[in-house]
Design a protein around this nucleic acid. Structure first.
Lengths: 200, 200
DNA sequence: GTTGACATATTACAGTTGACCGGTAAAAGC
DNA sequence: GCTTTTACCGGTCAACTGTAATATGTCAAC
């Protein structure tokens, strides 16, 4: 057997280097050479792990989604047992917003992901499936919360789910410094207050 | 006097060509040459109107914001007199969402604008100021609506304004086909219902 | 019809890009 | 020792980029 390296780990290292370049200089500047330099390896090495730049970008984007999911899972695990649906939704939303360094990196990759999806059939499918999956998770929580009497049965699960996802629209306001992180949290809590109004 | 050309109009023509390229192939593909070809002129002509590519992009983005404002103003003008604050907010929000071709073009430019602002101090300032201005307009409407008794005085104008702006977060869901335009409108109306609950 | 100002087109240049390829080093099996 | 497989490097090439310099076209005033 030849010299062995954890392929997956290498790719993740390169992906994180790409995140840093994208965060500081934009996705457009994330060339193979630039990312290689950021990762401290030769551009030939990057090519060894990613046949094309497109493949590298796609992996870095999927990796960002994956890491976000892991952070959410971690946050939910720290909640009481069983966790209150309101707290679960709050964790999900706050981890999707750029409120701390890790979340900011993945948030920016997600933004670039969506923009790229608009003119790349390949990425479009993956982004859509990912979003649909996340939406279904939230919808299930909302449905269960209605069943358990935490949310008024008058509410339409689908519409309320869309409105919850909509809170990620705070991202541009935070990123551009139009509002403070604290104001974003206030807005999230206010929305959740309304959703869980007059209930436990 | 020499042959005269409406400078502003030419720049807008080029900007619209840039929109088309950006919409179909992404901002990254919006090179001087590509835009020139889309506009049906030589790339030298584009240079005549925009010294640099960056200047061209900045103009196209500002032009998009401007056109959105014009569409909003037009929509508000078509309302009753005096217009109900709820209707005004609805027009603003629906014109910012990619629900028809013009709005989609400007929406995509806005998205690219924000992404670009994250690593360009120049654009950052302009994007932030533009967003802050729009936010102040909405906040003023919310304040007035509270004064006029359309919205409960229990609501905090700043937070409610942030939540209204947040509805632009429906954009990715619409663009990726996760939800239908009709569902987006339902969500907007549901949010406005809650905001104007128990009031006229 | 000459001039001057501006619009547009052409060409050139230097730099960067992604992709490709040959070569080398290292590790493991034979 | 030899071969095979994997990891990595560095160079090369064609294509494309933004931009500058230059040339040509156009039209109105004098």
């Amino acid at each position: 057997m030849p010299k062995q390296v954890d392929h997956r780990e290498r790719r993740e290292t390169i992906a994180r280097a790409l995140w840093r370049v994208a965060e500081q200089r934009g996705i457009a500047q994330a060339s193979v050479r630039e990312v290689a330099q950021e990762a401290g390896i030769s551009h030939g090495a990057v090519q060894h792990y990613f046949a094309t730049r497109e493949e590298m970008l796609a992996f870095a984007m999927d990796f960002a989604s994956e890491q976000t999911s892991l952070r959410v899972a971690e946050g939910v695990r720290e909640l009481g047992n069983p966790p209150h649906p309101r707290d679960m939704l709050r964790v999900m939303l706050t981890e999707m917003l750029p409120l701390h360094p890790d979340a900011r990196a993945t948030s920016r990759m997600s933004a670039a992901y969506v923009l790229e999806a608009l003119h790349s059939a390949n990425i479009h499918t993956r982004a859509r499936d990912g979003l649909t999956h996340g939406r279904d998770l939230i919808k299930q929580i909302v449905r269960q919360a209605i069943t358990d009497g935490h949310i008024s049965p008058d509410r339409d699960p689908a519409t309320e789910t869309n409105l919850l996802l909509t809170l990620t629209g705070l991202t541009p306001l935070i990123e551009l410094g139009v509002i403070e992180p604290q104001e974003a949290l206030t807005a999230v809590d206010q929305h959740l207050n309304q959703l869980f109004a007059n209930k436990t």
